[in-house]
Amino acid sequence: MIGKTIGASIRAHLSTDDPAVSDAAWESVPSSDELREQVQHVLDTDINPSVAAHGGVVRLIDVKDNQVFIQMGGGYQGCGQADVTLKFGVENSIRAAVPGVGVILDVTDHASGRNPYFTPSTK
């Protein structure tokens, strides 16, 4: 029931010329440079000192608008638990410390990881 209501609202909005995200909302989002600096600070102070224990590193690759692109390296490249660390560790910490961050995208080439900390092995 609620799905139909939401769907109808979205369709109604898309039929207008109004932007999907209001200008006021965008104005409240920090600039890419500000976001880059704050996210890098979280990585430097909270994330990387901890993940180093597993031979891992998390790098900030880029910030476009409010989208954050990160890359996992060392033991986290190709690690079977990388999604857990990303979703519940890295992403959670960044969002808590840096309001205004949008999508956080992992651009790691996990298939090329040479020394993953955990490797899947069983059913």
């Binding site: 909270d46 993940v51 638990q81 857990v84 519940f88 560790g89 959670n92 910490s93 955990f118």
Partner: peptide, 20 residues
């Protein structure tokens, strides 16, 4: 809400103890 449990500690567990 999701809590993930594994047999070995996640390196970031101290940052999000309700999820890890």
């Amino acid at each position: 809400d999701v809590t993930v449990a594994s047999e070995q500690p996640n390196a970031l567990a101290r940052l999000n103890p309700t999820a890890l």
